[in-house]
């Protein structure tokens, strides 16, 4: 709920395993709310939602162990270094240090490994947040405006991670305003308007 108004109403959406689904829509349409709901950060007031076959109302914790969210914020600690932030997130998710180090290398932040989060540029912070997400080796990757703040190199890294995710058994739900970039990655697109899902015809998407 946003004040007296429901943030999402009448959302009916199935996502197949291995899909890269683009969630498009205007500001305030409910994209972020839907992603946070899928991540298990919000609870349902009405209706049902299953993520990775688990009912969110029954076991949000189990869902959280299998998803990763790249949101507007990095979820990192300003006074920890890149490596420390990454290792903390990976180990908290039951992953190893080597998983964290591999993620760091994948996003191209190795040379910033010993710099604290507070001293990183916006783009570097986004890369670290992306590394945090993939270090968890999620089965569902939730990306909220993932291209925002990234330079060309960062966008290339992001695109490679998203494109290769299905082969690693990971489904991707991607909310973006940068439709040209996002459509190059997505295998399907839906629109969310005023909290409701509208599934456009393929021809309309391409137009």
């Amino acid at each position: 709920m946003l004040g007296r108004f429901p943030a999402l109403a009448g959302v009916d959406l199935d996502i197949d395993s291995g899909e890269i689904l683009l969630l498009a829509g205007p500001n305030g349409a409910g994209k972020t709310t839907l992603l946070r709901l899928c991540a298990g950060l919000l609870s349902l007031r009405a209706g049902t939602a299953e993520v990775l076959g688990v009912d969110l109302a029954v076991d949000r914790k189990r869902v959280r162990r299998s998803v990763a969210l790249l949101g507007h914020e990095t979820f990192c600690y300003d006074d920890l270094t890149v490596t420390e932030n990454l290792r903390f997130a990976a180990r908290a998710a039951g992953r190893s240090r080597s998983d964290a180090d591999a993620a760091l290398e994948r996003v191209g932040l190795t040379r910033m490994a010993n710099v604290t989060h507070g001293k990183l540029s916006e783009g570097q912070r986004r890369r670290l947040a992306l590394a945090n997400a993939i270090a968890r080796q999620p089965r569902l990757l939730l990306l909220d405006e993932p291209h925002a703040g990234l330079d060309e190199g960062g966008r290339a890294v992001l695109d490679e991670i998203v494109r290769t995710a299905p082969a690693a058994g990971c489904t991707v739900l991607l909310a973006s305003h940068e439709l040209q970039l996002a459509r190059q990655l997505a295998t399907r697109e839906v629109r969310i308007i005023a909290g409701q899902i509208h599934e456009p015809e393929r021809a309309e998407v391409l137009a």
Binding site: L41, L69, G71, T74, F75, Y77, D78, A92
Partner: peptide, 17 residues
């Protein structure tokens, strides 16, 4: 306070801990 910066609190919730 350190959990409120950058929404680290949400990171803790998502961590699975």
């Amino acid at each position: 306070n350190v959990e409120e910066s950058n929404r680290a609190r949400d990171g803790l919730r998502l961590s699975g801990l």
